[in-house]
């Protein structure tokens, strides 16, 4: 191949990549321009930017944020609390459990590990119906509401995220030399100090990975919160809120798209800032 040809292949590749990128971004374009329109302007020309204005966007956002079915700030706050607390607990409990499983080669720890791995194949649908009744009964029994409550939802995420978190963490802890721990315990370090002072700080990169994987899942999850919180209840996450908002009245696309824009924006902003970590985390999680 001579130079001329090579260059033209490169240009061709670039054009193809650019066209695909435009295709991928097209729905986002439609989302943004139509969130800036009044209903009439959408009917007239849904594809072009004609009729889109910033003042209309602000108007739409105001309507959406104050809507009783959406209650953006409330749903956003619940989503943030549920996601953040679940992620912190999963990282802490997950690494504690993974460390015990990894460093104790007993029948028990092997059995627990096996059950964790085997459980990853269980689809949520197989447990979701009995989960509602279990949570209802357990809540009534112990006097702490588990349904329609934020703590109950966090509890469920710790349970469902546990298996994958432990699986990824065990794979990482296996690679940490055991001599490190032996040396520390000979120096008089207690087991819990060994874990918190030596092992836990070493887990930082893999905790970033599991946090990204779990975070993407929990933030976007619809089915679990919709079942545990109830679609019309006072506690709701963003995906539940947008679903109940859409179902609440005759289709008004400008408002639906404004709500969608509000839901999408936080994730996109986080992605812009932590692009490298997110991409690396998603890939690492899949390969392990």
């Amino acid at each position: 191949m001579n130079r001329e040809e090579k260059k033209s292949v490169k240009v061709l590749k670039f054009i193809v990549a650019l066209l695909i990128a435009i295709y991928v971004l097209l729905p986002f374009y439609l989302l943004i321009i139509n969130a800036c329109k009044a209903p009439m302007a959408i009917t007239e020309s849904p594809v072009s930017a004609a009729g889109a204005s910033l003042s209309q966007l602000i108007q739409n956002l105001k309507d959406v944020i104050n809507n009783v079915h959406f209650e953006f700030w409330y749903a956003f706050g619940s989503s943030v609390v549920i996601t953040v607390v679940s992620l912190v607990l999963l990282a802490l409990f997950g690494s504690m459990a993974a460390w015990v499983i990894c460093r104790n080669k007993t029948k028990w720890s092997t059995a627990i590990y096996f059950i964790f791995i085997a459980s990853m194949i269980i689809p949520f649908q197989a447990v979701m119906l009995a989960l509602i009744s279990t949570f209802r009964d357990a809540g009534n029994f112990i006097g702490i509401p588990m349904l329609r409550s934020i703590p109950g939802t966090i509890f469920a995420y710790c349970g469902f995220g546990g298996a994958m978190t432990v699986f990824i963490l065990v794979g990482f802890i296996k690679g940490i030399p055991y001599e490190l721990e032996e040396a520390a315990s000979i120096d008089g370090c207690s087991p819990e100090a060994v874990f918190f002072r030596i092992i836990f700080p070493l887990l930082k990169p893999v905790i970033v990975t599991v946090t990204i994987l779990n975070g993407m899942w929990i933030w976007n999850d619809y089915l679990l919160p919709s079942l545990l919180l109830g679609s019309s209840s006072e506690v709701k996450t963003l995906p539940v809120a947008i679903q109940s908002f859409v179902g609440s009245f005759v289709v008004q696309w400008n408002l639906i798209l404004a709500a969608a824009l509000l839901t999408v924006t936080p994730m996109v902003i986080i992605f812009l800032f932590a692009q490298k970590q997110i991409i690396a985390g998603m890939v690492d999680g899949a390969i392990k």
């Binding site: 279990t134 469902f160 546990g162």
Partner: peptide
Amino acid sequence: FLFPLLFTFGVTV
């Protein structure tokens, strides 16, 4: 160390 995760896992899964 094992208790919190096993407990939530047992109750939810």
